[in-house]
Each structure stands twice: as structure tokens, then as C-alpha cells.
Amino acid sequence: MSQLSVQHLLGIKYITKKDIELIFSQADQFKEVINRPIKKVPSLRDITIANIFFENSTRTRLSFELAEKRLSADVVNFAASSSSVSKGETLIDTVNNILAMKVDIVVMRHPKPGAPLFLSKHVKAQIVNAGDGAHEHPTQGLLDAFSIREKLGDLKGVKVAIVGDILHSRVAISNIYCLQKMGAEVMVCGPTTLIPKYISALNVKVEHDMKKALQWCDVANMLRIQLERQDIQYFPSLREYVMMYGLNKQILDSLKKEIIIMHPGPINRGVEITSDVADSKHSVILQQVENGVAIRMAVLYLLAS
């Protein structure tokens, strides 16, 4: 009961409702820790963690690094762009070389879906997935659900709409798994081209009219249009996308009810969400970032023990 059912955190798909509750209950305590005058506890002082990022990241990497440091772990950072990966070294070789320097936990982001799963089968370290392609981003899913729970008290029966680029989004997948395991209802909303065909297999509602989705939901999670992954044209123009799926104050006011606005970052201001909405009292965007550190501390603490 006081331990996770898994050795690695590869995705929300692989963990149970009990695991999620356990992570949340410890994240509550870590949130108190990071608001102390001294925001650091000595729990992981004999542990070394490598943050291996094969893809760019600001928030997630900083958040993991802060979480690790606040648990007193030793931290090494590794960015693929400045490494021997560009000289042709394989993933397993790279990681095994890092592990030879006595590393206990590897936090990895990789552009290929399944890379952390593959790694977990071939190296002797615990793996935490910090985002793998369009597959999963488990800590983001956890912190989003944790932020909703903090705001509304419980996740059971809460209606969450995920709006935007679902096709390329690992955040959407992890959110769907996490919210459904905790008893929330999920709807995805976006242009037909950005909703994957297999989404119905996940048992979520699909809506193409954002206004209707917002009417239905208690929480709207506005995803970023992943401009770097638009290998083909998914919508006629960014302007047209903004007109149909951009959230602004006017739409929010016309709902006649209060909904919580979330965004996993980084925000394309004026595209999926306007500045006045992102900075309004409905938005919990910065709370999400704060909770991210607490959630990652809880995950690392529970995996390490």
C-alpha cells in the first residue's frame, strides 16, 4: 500500500488508481515542504539522478531538476545536442555510459515514442519518462489532475475538455489516462485533422465545436499547437485556427459559468489562448507549474524507496 506497483514511471497507462492516489498524497506533503523557509529535505541524499534530454524543454527539465535538488539528490544534466549522440552513439550505449558513473535514476525525454520503455528493458536503472514523442508525458498528466483536485477537491465526476492539437499531444494521452482512472469524464475538442482516429478506443467524447465543449466542461485544458510537428498542413491557416479554437475573454464571458483554464505550457499567446484569459483568475497555469515540482518530488521519492 505504501509503495508504487511499478519500478519505472513510463506512462500513466501502466500505473493504477492506487498509485496515483499515493503520489497525490505525498505530493500534498511535498507542496508544504517547498513552501517552507528551507525548501529542502535530505531524503534522496545518497541517490544520483541523470536528466537526459534528447528534445528541448524548459519547464519540465527545470521542474525535475528542482524536484531532485529539493530532495537532496545529486543531479547530472545531459542534453543530446551537446553530446556524443551527434557522433553516432546508440541510446543504450549512451545511457550505460552514464550509469557506469553510478547513476540510480534516469529521467529521460526522447522524440521517439516508447524510448523509455525500451530503455527500461535494457539498462539497470529506474526510468522516469519526461515525455516520449506523441506517446506519454506522465508527470504532466499527474500534475494536471493534481491541480484540478486541488481546485475542486475531488476528480470524480469532473468534466474536463482537452482542446487543441490532440494528434501530436503526449500531454493529452497522459491526461486522458490519469483523469479517467480517477473517475473524471474527458472530452477532446479540435479540428478533425488534429483528432486521431483511434481516440474513440480511449472512451472519450469528441467535439469539434469549442463553444459546445466549453459549455459542457468544468475544466478546459488548452493545448499548444505544436508548430514544430506540423509536417503537413492540418488546417488552412493559423488565423482560421485561432478563430475557431482560440480561447478569448469574450467566449469565456458568454458561458455564464466559471470554468478552470489550464495550459501545460509553453503558451502561444494569441493562438490557443489570449493573454487576458491566460492571466485571468480562472487560469491555474502558474499553480500547475508549482504543483509540477511537488508531483515530481513525490514520484522520485516513491520510486527511490
Binding site: 505504501s2 505525498q26 506533503q29 529535505v41 531524503s43
Partner: peptide, 20 residues
């Protein structure tokens, strides 16, 4: 709560933190 300051972390059974 003293859980995060225990000297038997990873040595004995795991303890869960309670509110401070």
C-alpha cells in the same frame, strides 16, 4: 512530520509522510 528526515530511507520499510 519527520518522514523525509528519517535515517532508514531505502533501508527499512517505506513510510508515508503525514501533514506538517
Amino acid at each position: 512530520d519527520i518522514t523525509f528526515y528519517r535515517d532508514d530511507f531505502r533501508r527499512g520499510e517505506q513510510h508515508l509522510a503525514k501533514p506538517t
